[in-house]
């Protein structure tokens, strides 16, 4: 198991190096940092000297090595717009996004598991058909449209929920959380629903189809033949086997959810990493964009590594390979 985890972590680090390389390459081709620092009034000689001083004349690989070294120490360059280290800017925006993704992941798991199982074991029930129909609609409507419709119904027509921002937040050890105030939670509801609107139906469908396939297996028929209670057959025998593919896909999808936050955050003016990234693009803040890329890539890799490890815990066959 330890060897298995070490291998996965090493693989994750390899992926991070590749992501950093791509990010660095983008930054390199994005324009001249010297001009951005100095402005136009500085002479060519002075610029050249500054260039030498900043190490911009070094070979690509040397510069990349330096970038990697700094990145590993948490330094991803300066944001031109904020005049602060990019990392600091991202970290100040991260809690908003992470809370949104977290709530949405919880919502997805809490709803998709029971609904998916139900639709798999009672596919002909009216309610199951309704859920499947609704999920098709859910998958087909883009996030921003769902978000706008939610705002129209619950903010403009009904005045139940606020339409933008995070509301009142509480600072706990540097983490601005909206989860502890009623106002913050009210602000969270619609963005969470909007963010889940694509993934939730996808997960219901995934769990349903995987579960239906598992239910066809001989060992399920055997479980019935042993006279086990229905709940045990469905949950312990069928769902545990359903989990394996769901965890794999689920990990990747959780990463994609982070990407979808860009849309959701923009519509709800949610001050998180997603809207920060859009602003960075508009301001051509290349350091901040690359930093975002690296940080999101890092979250992706961490999530996938954790998923792999969980998969190993659920699937005994993987664990054995890991032991060797």
């Amino acid at each position: 198991m330890v060897a298995f985890i070490i291998r996965r972590v090493l693989q994750g680090m390899m992926v991070m190096v590749v992501i950093a390389l791509i990010g660095f390459a983008i930054k390199q081709s994005f324009g001249d940092p010297v001009r951005e620092i100095t402005g136009i009034s500085v002479s060519a000689e002075e610029r050249e000297a500054l260039r030498e001083e900043l190490g911009l004349n070094d070979p690509f690989m040397v510069q990349f090595g330096r970038f990697l070294y700094n990145a590993a120490h948490g330094d991803l360059g300066q944001s031109f717009f904020y005049k602060k280290p990019a990392m600091e800017v991202i970290l100040s925006k991260a809690p908003a996004t992470l809370e949104l993704v977290f709530c949405s992941a919880i919502l997805i798991v809490l709803l998709s598991v029971p609904l998916g199982i139900y639709c798999a074991i009672r596919p002909k029930q009216l309610f199951a058909k309704f859920v499947m129909g609704a999920s098709t609609v859910g998958v087909s409507i883009p996030v921003f449209l769902t978000a706008i419709m939610l705002i129209y119904i619950f903010s403009i027509e009904l005045h139940w929920l606020p339409s933008f921002g995070r509301g009142e937040t509480v600072n706990i050890g540097g983490w601005q959380t909206g989860l502890l105030t009623w106002d913050g939670i009210k602000h969270l509801i619609m963005p969470t629903v909007a963010l889940s609107s694509i993934m939730l139906p996808l997960f219901i469908r995934l769990i349903r189809s995987e579960m239906m396939e598992v239910l066809q297996n001989e060992y399920i028929k055997y479980a019935w033949a042993k006279g086990l209670p229905p709940l045990r057959v469905w949950i312990v025998h069928a769902f545990r086997n359903t989990l394996l593919p769901v965890i794999t896909v689920g990990g990747v999808q959780l990463g994609i959810t982070i990407a979808f936050t860009i849309l959701t955050e923009t519509v709800f003016s949610w001050q998180g990493m997603g809207s920060m990234f859009i602003q960075a693009v508009e301001r051509a803040d290349s350091s901040l964009m690359v930093a975002y890329l690296v940080v999101v890539g890092f979250i992706f890799v961490v999530v996938n590594t954790v998923v792999d490890i969980i998969y190993g815990l659920v699937n005994p066959t993987v664990r054995i390979t890991g032991r060797k």
Binding site: Y219, Y222, H237, R240, N241, T317
Partner: peptide, 8 residues
């Protein structure tokens, strides 16, 4: 095929 692969 009869025994469940994920249970001891």
């Amino acid at each position: 095929m009869t025994l469940n692969p994920v249970l001891t």
